[in-house]
């Protein structure tokens, strides 16, 4: 499923023209991205929570060359599915 498929589903369920649905999808995604970029987590009841985690620098190794290198500090997103989402997918067939 891609943005275009999502726009189609929103069109079918809500009757919103696809072009407008696509614009709104973009706004929803951008708003979530902007919030996460500020370091704030996003909690969607019934779906899940996106948390921003700070990783401290650590020693690593380039898997290709075997060379030692420093992995710099960075922020990563961790997504935790809500119980409702967990139950919805538990028995799904995998692709």
């Amino acid at each position: 499923m891609t943005r275009a498929d999502l726009a189609r589903v929103i069109f079918e369920k809500v009757g919103l023209p696809k072009k407008e649905a696509q614009d709104i999808i973009e706004i929803i995604i951008d708003t979530i991205k902007d919030t996460l970029a500020e370091g704030e987590s996003v909690k969607i009841t019934g779906f899940g929570t996106f948390n921003v985690r700070k990783k401290t620098p650590r020693r690593g190794r380039n898997p290709q060359t075997g060379e030692d290198m420093e992995i710099t500090a960075r922020k990563v997103i961790s997504f935790k599915a809500s119980n409702i989402l967990k139950e919805a997918v538990e028995k799904a067939e995998s692709e």
């Binding site: 499923m1 929103i10 809500v14 999808i25 929803i28 991205k33 779906f47 989402l85 997918v89």
Partner: peptide
């Protein structure tokens, strides 16, 4: 609309479908 957005993702996943939102994840 926001509710339908998240519900649709949930439904796709529950059918074993992958959801690809380029630029987001």
């Amino acid at each position: 609309i926001v509710e339908t957005f998240f519900d649709s993702i949930k439904e796709a996943l529950s059918k074993g479908e992958k959801v690809e939102l380029r630029g987001f994840g």
